[in-house]
Every structure is written in C-alpha cells, then in structure tokens.
C-alpha cells in the first residue's frame, strides 16, 4: 500500500542523509522525498511517499521515529488529508500546436510561465494523478522535459503537525 508520511526533523546537517540512509540500509521503498525548512527555522519538514505491506510501513514509521533527529511523525494516509505536487513541464510549442497547448493549460488550470518562439514552460500544481493526466494529455512528440517536486501533504481540519 502507498503511504504518505510527514516528518518534522531537526534542521541539522546530515538529517536528510540519515533518512535516506535508513531507507537504503533496510531495503525500504521510497517513491519520493521532499524536504524544506519550516516557519520555525530549527525544524525541517519532510514528506515521503513509500509503499509496502502494513508490517513494513509500521517498521518504517518506527525506524523513522527512532532517528534522534526526528521530532514528530505523522502518517497522513491514516486520515483525511490533502496532497499537492508541483510540476514544471517544457513542451515544444510551434505555431500549429500552440492553441492546443494553451487550451490544455486552461482545462487543467495550469499556467504558462515561459514562452519562446518554439516552446512553453507550463506550471501545474495538484494531486500526483492530475499531473500524470496532464503529461498523458500532451500530444505525442511535444514533451521536452518534466520536473516534479514529489508530493507534499497536510491533514484536513484544524489539527496540525506542529510541536
């Protein structure tokens, strides 16, 4: 099963490598991992997406909690939550294709953020599946480059993952 796990980490050098090292050393799957400092500069927030049986995911959470740099951890998949991923996609946009690409951008509520005579860069934010759908919708042969941030997430309702 796919799980999306949010971790508050001490914002210390090496904290990220402890998490990455844990996953490789114990042979856990890791689909994506994003990390950035929070409003509290001493804390980083990491979101990671992993897959595994319930036993494995339980172990992953225990092992993450065991890291001395881990302050708090929440499996967002345990309750209602919102996931968002950001993507920038560069496409070939020559005259005959420009209208189609602009329409597609509107339909997906994306934004064109760079324009040249022959290309667009389109920015799109949403659930990972929506990003996949956009890539699939781009006409054959126009795709140049895709950059995805990996998903990040937050719980619904007033309770937050804070100290």
């Amino acid at each position: 099963m796919r799980h999306i796990i949010a971790v508050l980490l001490e914002n210390e050098a090496g904290a990220l490598s402890r998490v990455a090292g844990l996953f490789s050393a114990r042979g856990y799957n890791i689909e994506s991992l994003t990390v950035a400092p929070t409003d509290d500069p001493t804390l980083s927030r990491m979101t990671l997406v992993t897959t595994g049986s319930e036993e494995i995911v339980e172990q992953i959470k225990k092992q993450l909690n065991k890291l001395i740099d881990t302050v708090k951890l929440l499996d967002l998949s345990d309750g209602p939550h919102i996931e968002r991923e950001m993507m920038m996609i560069k496409v070939r946009a020559e005259r005959p294709d420009r209208e189609e690409l602009k329409r597609l951008t509107e339909i997906f509520r994306a934004k064109i953020i760079d324009v040249t005579e022959t290309s667009y860069v389109i920015e799109l934010t949403g659930a990972s599946k929506k990003l996949d759908a956009f890539i699939d919708a781009v006409p054959e042969g126009l795709l140049i480059e895709v950059v995805r941030s990996g998903p990040t997430g937050i719980t619904r309702g007033e309770k937050g993952l804070t100290l």
């Binding site: 036993e55 172990q59 909690n65």
Partner: peptide, 11 residues
C-alpha cells in the same frame, strides 16, 4: 525498550 524491536521479525 525499543518500539522498533516489536513485531519486526515476528508478530
């Protein structure tokens, strides 16, 4: 004393 020892190999 270590939660990660529990149900690691045997439920």
């Amino acid at each position: 004393v270590d939660p990660s020892s529990i149900s690691k190999n045997v439920r």
